[in-house]
Amino acid sequence: MWDYPFMVNAFRAGAIVAVLAGVTGWFMVLRRQTFAGHSLSIVAFPGAAGATLIGVGAAYGYFGFCVGAAVVLALATRGRAGHRAQESALTGTVQAFALACGLLFVSLYKGFLDGTTALLFGTFLGITEGQVMVLGAVALTVLATLAVIGRPLLFATIDPDVATARGVPVRALSVVFLVLLGAAVAEAAQITGALLVFALLVVPAATAQRLTARPVPSLLLSVLIGWVVTWAGLAAAYYSSYPIGFYVTSFAFAGYLLAHLVRWVRP
């Protein structure tokens, strides 16, 4: 397995993506923004399809669309906090429209059908050194920003009212966080595919938060689970004919069930 440079690159990229998704996903789960996270991850699909259609690098499409959708979601829900019904209708509409655009791009770009499955469900073949470098640079930027805003973001997430009263810019933080989430998703989608990024965002974080309520250990646990699951998925996909997405989601889900079992046995 290690004789092939593309597999080494896949493991490197997988580690970067897992760490990034573990951290941003942990905040996403804590903020109960799973629907927004899922919609952002879906947007990766039209991004990549659109970029292929007009002939620019797929990475531009991923980042352009995901960060763009994050800005739309963040701005459109502004000032209507507490209005959950409207917010969820908006998120759903953005997601469906993004997917419809993806379908349009795919059908305009004839002979693209095999690629569609890879865009949706991911591929770990053919990752280059250059891609790994770009992934690493973006991940560092996102993680550094999160490190700076992490404390106030945690405060604003756990008790928005008190945080506002103490002068924490709750609104601005939530906009910045959604944009970071968009960037993280755009990055992860290049490996796992648009439909399965969501698994890396939500499942390790949900498992970690199930196991411990203390922020730092559960954040680290979330990263660790994501990392192990991704590498195990890569290895399993290498030795079998089934897609990596299936293994990553199944391993992650097994871990989640195990965490439930642990909590159930030792309350």
């Binding site: 109960r32 439909l195 399965l196 969501f198 939500v202 997405g245 299936f246 990553v248 199944s250």
Partner: peptide, 15 residues
């Protein structure tokens, strides 16, 4: 979060 976790796995099964 529970819904998300379950259907993330469902999608993997779909793949």
């Amino acid at each position: 979060v529970v819904i998300g976790t379950v259907f993330a796995w469902t999608l993997g099964l779909g793949a």
